[in-house]
Design a protein around this nucleic acid. Sequence first.
DNA 1: CGAATGTTTCGGTGAACATCGAAGCATGAA
DNA 2: TTCATGCTTCGATGTTCACCGAAACATTCG
Lengths: 226, 226
Amino acid sequence: MKEGPDIARVAALIGDPARANMLTALMAGKALTATELAGVAGITPQTATSHLARLVDGGLAITRKQGRHKYLALADDQIAGTLESLMGLAARIGHSRTRTGPKDAAMREALVCYNHLAGAMGTRMFDSMVGHGLLEQSGEALRLTDAGARAAAALGIDVAALSRGRAPVCRSCLDWSERRTHLAGSLGRALLARFEAEGWARRDPASRAVRFSPDGRRRFDALFPA
Amino acid sequence: MKEGPDIARVAALIGDPARANMLTALMAGKALTATELAGVAGITPQTATSHLARLVDGGLAITRKQGRHKYLALADDQIAGTLESLMGLAARIGHSRTRTGPKDAAMREALVCYNHLAGAMGTRMFDSMVGHGLLEQSGEALRLTDAGARAAAALGIDVAALSRGRAPVCRSCLDWSERRTHLAGSLGRALLARFEAEGWARRDPASRAVRFSPDGRRRFDALFPA
DNA sequence: CGAATGTTTCGGTGAACATCGAAGCATGAA
DNA sequence: TTCATGCTTCGATGTTCACCGAAACATTCG
């Protein structure tokens, strides 16, 4: 009964407001410095140091030193998935902070989950790709079809390079606000990167929201029809 | 940035060893009394009282009074899903307790996730049903096919009654040990109940393990071929 | 009705933990 | 080389929280 994974330890690491805020900020997928994270959490740099040490020791974050700057990132994209699950649960049982504002609507629409698109547009993209035969599901396995590979290549994505990498090309990731799946994996990452490179979408530097331009939205809708 | 679901609160509720142990025990899906949960967590009844009050106030557990007995259960099966996600993460980043023992192997094979079958047999059942056209996936949507409905009826499951209920008939649930999907929803629950009613499988009262008899295992394998 | 059992309340204790001011160390730029 | 900035260490503080003994309340059974 008392064997197996120690969820209390992991949950306790997430269960501090300052640490939770920093982990949430890292969900946007961009590495942040210790000082930036201290700002995000509203604490002093010395307090951040001790919190970040715990996250790193606990395996939730990794560090990279660059001169006097120390960058931190989530250790693994599964952590984003678990944080999403906690968000979904917190939303469901009514644990929210502050009143909803304009940013909430934007984040329901499109946001970054670690390195790929989430929110309504993320799940719509996934459903469209499955419905139009670009992605194929067999049990849990998620595979890019030939048609999907062609479509990705047409977007300028080097599918062969993705396949050669260690990360899975396609992985499903549960979206907390939609309670549906969005596309993770190296393809999910590459797609978001393309949307940004093409100027269709921009990341909001102050949150995880992704803003599509009107033109970008039109192109997205054309590419991923319902 | 500081808006939206308060994951710190939820995680802090899970992040106490006593409470985590109690939540894990409730994942087996059976309602337990306050005194039983105190035993599971290795604490006194008065300490359990205060912990359980926090779980109930926090929306993670519900209570039902029966004379002098107070029964508790997880408030929602999504909680089991989130706990599974935390288990997967804890296992992945190396937060484990005590050495693995025989029970671990049994639990990897077949175990209860709230009210449905999980573990290797749970994910195998899901994959088989999808691969043989009993379940159909379209994006996140998971639907029982006509062939699936017939197979379930042949097992003695009242599919029409399931469909009339409020709960989804089929829902996918991520399995932490397998990193694959097993079947939740009212069909998942009904299937596990049938396996038990037919004598194919028995729940281990001291853990979440499900023990299949040799005959039950043979029948399961025949029903859900690879 | 008295005894047994399940659960809760009350009050107190000690440990853990988040926090920050002060100071120090490391790095980069002028 | 000096100054500025990022980060860490040290030491102390106050709060929170898990815990339990004792007692009380609620229910059940003989």
